[in-house]
Amino acid sequence: MRKILLLPFIFLPVILFAQGQHTLMDTLRAQLEIVFKADQQYRLPLEGMAKKYGWNSHQVDSLYEGMSIRDSIDLGIVTHILDTYGWIGTDSIGPSGSTTLWVVIQHADPDVQKKYLPMMRTAVAQGRAHANELAYLEDRVALEEGRKQTYGTQFQLNKKTNKYIIAPIEDEPNVDRRRAAIGLEPLEDYARDAGIAYKLPASPPAKPAQGPDKNP
Rank of each mutant, 00 (worst) to 15 (best):
residue 205 P to C: 10
residue 211 G to F: 04
residue 199 K to D: 09
residue 192 R to H: 13
residue 206 A to D: 13
residue 210 Q to D: 07
residue 184 L to D: 01
residue 206 A to H: 12
residue 214 K to C: 09
residue 188 E to R: 03
residue 184 L to R: 02
residue 213 D to P: 04
residue 204 P to Q: 08
residue 199 K to M: 07
residue 204 P to R: 08
residue 197 A to G: 03
residue 199 K to C: 02
residue 216 P to A: 13
residue 190 Y to I: 06
residue 192 R to L: 09
residue 187 L to K: 05
residue 201 P to N: 09
residue 207 K to N: 06
residue 191 A to H: 04
residue 197 A to C: 01
residue 213 D to H: 11
residue 212 P to V: 08
residue 209 A to P: 00
residue 208 P to K: 10
residue 211 G to P: 10
residue 188 E to G: 02
residue 188 E to N: 04
residue 186 P to H: 00
residue 208 P to Q: 06
residue 195 G to S: 03
residue 211 G to E: 11
residue 203 S to G: 09
residue 210 Q to Y: 03
residue 197 A to W: 07
residue 190 Y to Q: 10
residue 193 D to W: 07
residue 216 P to L: 13
residue 182 I to L: 08
residue 192 R to S: 13
residue 209 A to E: 14
residue 182 I to E: 11
residue 193 D to I: 00
residue 188 E to P: 09
residue 207 K to D: 05
residue 212 P to G: 04
residue 186 P to A: 05
residue 186 P to I: 05
residue 197 A to K: 14
residue 199 K to E: 11
residue 193 D to T: 09
residue 200 L to S: 07
residue 203 S to L: 14
residue 184 L to Y: 00
residue 212 P to T: 12
residue 193 D to G: 01
residue 208 P to E: 10
residue 216 P to G: 12
residue 207 K to I: 14
residue 182 I to S: 06
residue 214 K to S: 05
